[in-house]
Nucleic acid binder design. Structure first.
Length: 826
DNA sequence: CCCTGACTCTTTTTT
DNA sequence: AGAGTCAGGG
């Protein structure tokens, strides 16, 4: 943690400034060039607190990096005195790089990281202060769900209507509010048996974590706050160190994160009554240990945010953190950035119109001087496959007109929507990359490998040891696992240590041997990765140890022998994981196994956005926050999806959904597509979808509906598009309708579009095809606009969701939603 | 202890 | 549709 003192090179690269000089220097001119007036003010203002209200695309990253660069270049701060908090590791990396480009070497030693990474660094240093070991491991949500699941089962809490998911989310919410089991119990209604059992679970969960020497995600923040409050002298070390704290995406901070910032920016009440260490912008050249007993004013705080982009209320983000910033930090300066440097005016107008429907917000209008740009393109498909095919075709068209794949992104509301897109993209040979979703690190084989590493790095982590106990199959089942746990309990040793005493367990000889082997493999790996006395293992021991574990445990062997075809892919995934470990060792020559595990635990969805491969990026609207692309497709713009059905019942839900849509729109630089489908399969059954209410909020003249919801009536949607991906010249098929809109979607004439009210997005909502309660029965003949004639086999489902299973004369068997399909009974 | 097949529940968003 | 869970038989 102690950063190297600035080198001679640093000193040479910056002009020497006289101590006591206040404010930015002329030397920063190039850092201010090209900035507009508010941006400039945001870069140069000096004071205890600064709030930068930064609309989407208003150059806030530029402002932040230049602000840091100016602080460094003017010698107002050492790199080590700067703490910058970003939302993702990727954003942190970018910021570090950009500051580096501005000021060179002197950028080293800054803390630029996420809340979670910063807290891990602090906790690793200080864990011993409060009963943890610095080898603690981090439970991701999957790990903690597994633990909670076990506890729920053990406490038979399901009888009280407590599911693992509900318990997990409640605990998470409470931790974000800085409550612990004890404080919560004091004000809980203990007459309610469900409440009592929840309190019990909460407490058991906390104890299990502590026993395992582990923190969950929420703990990383909450325990750091606890640490600072319980041990002021520890907090003072960090208060002295960080003199400039900058927080990005402040609108999405939760109470725990807010409290952490508050703690860090508190003044230090020195032990002696010496002169204040710093005042009025005085330069601070002293390294931190000096004058450690002096009083010190609070660190200077800069926060950047936009309440219109607050989309994480569901995980405890509190919009009040930003809206009441001025009250929290009296005398705070506020700077508004409204000029947008990202998008065309059409895109901004749509965004402004949409977000304007949220009441209870400060009016803020993004504007640009780059001109109107292209119209937004709208499209309605018959099914989600049809919609996906449109996206794929359009990407192909853009590609041929010179747009790179990596400049294109496709957004959706829920992860499950990616499936249809993927299917079509594969068939259409569109290279794509899914960010987040079923993550690499969530795959079972990767979690197993991680559990092996964890069992070595933190033997106290019982969950990890239990996980690998019978992976690969060793014949160790429930009974044996319980026997080990009981033995560990009796002997007052850890679960891991109990493995070393296999012979003492009342289990068969075969199983004893299996346990002893596992123990030996773990011991061998420990020796390699955690050499006993003082010496530090080289980073290369991480991939080596991993390989050893996977081989000698028999894990790889059993996968290779397996006849399950999926296991082949698992082996490949593990190979990739070993490659990741090698990469880590190469990038972090001093990295330990714990560093590796920490890195892996804290990667975020947006982090693996890679720049070089030239693929289209697929991601949820949430993941899209903070990113930008030339071309953006927002898909599934339907009621019940965006706004999501579940949001309707939550206070502030619909408004947050609107912000989410707004975030999506404002990611686009040049081109924006909004698409939806008339029917969508969900839970394995098809149902009718309605256009999102948000579409109506966009002024009609901004949108060019290639196919509006109204147009899908009776002639538009064809599954043929989706079913015949590559279809040169529309030669395939043989359907009655043929290729109505293949690769060359001809936009409707402008006058027609604007004057025909049926094409106004705000009229289309009601104009869906509706066959009413058209009755069909097995044996009926029907005609489909695209598939031609066919015979009904059966009818399933009820009401609006009745589905006809039809055997078409030429197009084969299809399932059709009777209510909306373009069909007539013959 | 392990495998199989029937059954159920899921889908909001994530560090 | 797909993943996770459970009961029953090997």
């Amino acid at each position: 943690m102690t950063d190297p003192a600035p080198t001679a090179r640093d000193a040479a690269s910056v002009p020497v400034i006289v101590v006591g000089d206040a404010g930015p220097r002329d030397e920063g001119d190039d850092l201010l060039r090209g900035l507009n007036e508010p941006q400039r003010r945001a870069v140069t203002y000096r004071g205890p607190a600064l709030l930068i209200v930064a609309g989407a695309g208003s150059g806030k990253t530029r402002v932040l990096t230049h602000r840091i660069a100016l602080l460094l270049r003017n010698r107002e701060a050492w790199p080590s005195q700067i703490l910058a908090i970003t939302f993702t590791n990727k954003a942190a990396g970018e910021m570090r790089e950009r500051v580096g480009q501005l000021v060179g070497e002197s950028a080293r030693g800054m803390w630029i990281s996420t809340f979670h990474s910063a807290c891990v660094r602090i906790l690793r240093r200080e864990a011993e202060q409060f009963g943890f070991k610095n080898s603690f491991t981090i439970y991701d949500s999957g790990d903690s769900r597994a633990l909670i699941k076990r506890l729920v089962k053990e406490h038979e809490a399901d009888a009280f209507g407590l599911t693992p998911a509900s318990v997990q989310s409640r605990i998470s919410k409470l931790k974000n509010e800085l409550a612990d089991a004890e404080s919560y119990a004091r004000q809980a209604n203990m007459n309610d048996p469900a409440e009592r059992i929840f309190v019990e679970l909460f407490g058991a969960y906390e104890r299990a974590l502590r026993k395992s020497n582990a923190f969950d995600f929420d703990d990383l923040i909450a325990q750091t706050v606890y640490l600072f409050r319980a041990f002021p002298h520890v907090a003072d070390v960090y208060r002295r160190r960080f003199r400039h704290i900058l927080v990005d995406e402040y609108q999405d901070t939760n109470h725990a994160q807010y409290s952490l910032i508050r703690e860090l920016t508190r003044p230090v009440s020195g032990a002696s009554s010496a002169e204040p260490y710093s005042s009025g912008g005085m330069m601070i050249f002293e390294p931190e240990p000096a004058a450690a007993t002096d009083a010190l004013e609070g660190a200077s705080l800069t926060v950047v945010g936009d309440s219109d982009q607050s989309i994480y209320a569901f995980r405890g983000a509190d919009i009040r953190n930003i809206s009441e910033f001025e009250r929290d930090f009296p005398g705070a300066e506020v700077v508004l950035l409204e000029q947008n440097y990202r998008s065309t005016q059409n895109i901004l107008s749509a965004a402004n119109a949409v977000i304007g429907n949220n009441f209870d917000r400060k009016d803020k209008k993004l504007w640009t001087d780059v001109g109107a740009g292209e119209q937004i393109v709208g499209f309605t498909g018959y099914s989600q496959h049809d919609e996906a095919q449109f996206v794929a075709d359009e990407i192909d068209r853009l590609r041929r007109s010179g747009v790179g794949y990596s400049d294109i992104a496709v957004f959706y509301r829920t992860n499950s929507q990616s499936r249809a897109l993927e299917e079509i993209f594969i068939r259409s040979a569109v290279p794509y990359k899914i960010m987040g979703g079923t993550k690499f690190y969530e795959r079972a084989e990767i979690k197993d490998a991680l559990a092996y590493l964890t069992a070595v790095a933190n033997p106290a982590d019982e969950m990890a040891v239990r996980r690998i106990l019978n992976r690969p199959r060793r014949g160790i089942g429930d009974v044996t696992e319980t026997a080990i746990a009981r033995y560990a309990d009796e002997q007052q040793i850890t679960f891991r240590d109990a493995l070393a005493n296999a012979s003492a367990l009342a289990v068969g000889p075969k199983i004893q041997t299996a346990i002893a082997q596992l123990d030996a493999v773990l011991a061998e790996a420990s020796e390699l990765m955690l050499p006993a006395s003082g010496e530090v293992a080289p980073a290369s021991s991480v991939p080596e140890g991993l390989t050893l574990l996977l081989n000698k445990s028999g894990y790889l062997e059993s996968l290779r022998r397996s006849k399950d075809p999926q296991d082949e892919a698992r082996v490949e995934n593990l190979d990739e994981f070993v490659a990741v470990a090698r990469e880590f060792a190469r990038n972090n020559p001093d990295g330990t196994i714990l560093d590796f595990l920490t890195d892996v635990a804290l990667v975020s969805d947006a982090d693996d956005l890679d720049d070089g491969t030239g693929s289209v990026s697929l991601m949820t609207l949430h993941t899209a926050k903070g990113l930008e692309f030339d071309t953006v497709f927002i898909t599934g713009v339907e009621e019940d999806l965006i706004p999501h059905r579940i949001s309707a019942g939550e206070p502030g839900g619909p408004q947050e959904e609107r912000r989410l849509f707004y975030v999506g729109i404002t990611r686009a630089r040049q081109r924006l597509y909004l698409s939806l489908a008339m029917t969508r399969a969900q839970f394995g059954e098809v149902s009718a979808a309605m256009p999102s209410r948000f579409l109506q909020e966009i002024p009609a003249e901004l949108v060019n509906w290639r196919q509006s919801p109204g147009d899908v009536n009776g002639r538009g949607g064809t599954q043929s598009r989706a079913l015949n991906a590559r279809r040169p010249g529309g030669a395939s098929g043989g359907f009655g309708g043929g290729n109505r809109y293949g690769d060359d979607l001809v936009p409707l004439g402008r006058s027609q579009r604007v004057t025909d009210p049926s094409r106004f997005p705000n009229r289309v909502t009601a104009k869906m095809r509706d066959n009413g309660d058209l009755q069909l029965a097995a044996g009926d003949r029907i005609r489909h606009d695209d598939f031609g004639e066919g015979r009904v086999d059966t009818v399933t489902g009820e009401g609006a969701k009745r589905i006809a299973h039809v055997r078409f004369d030429t197009a084969g068997a299809k399932k059709l939603l009777i209510k909306v399909a373009p069909i007539t009974k013959l």
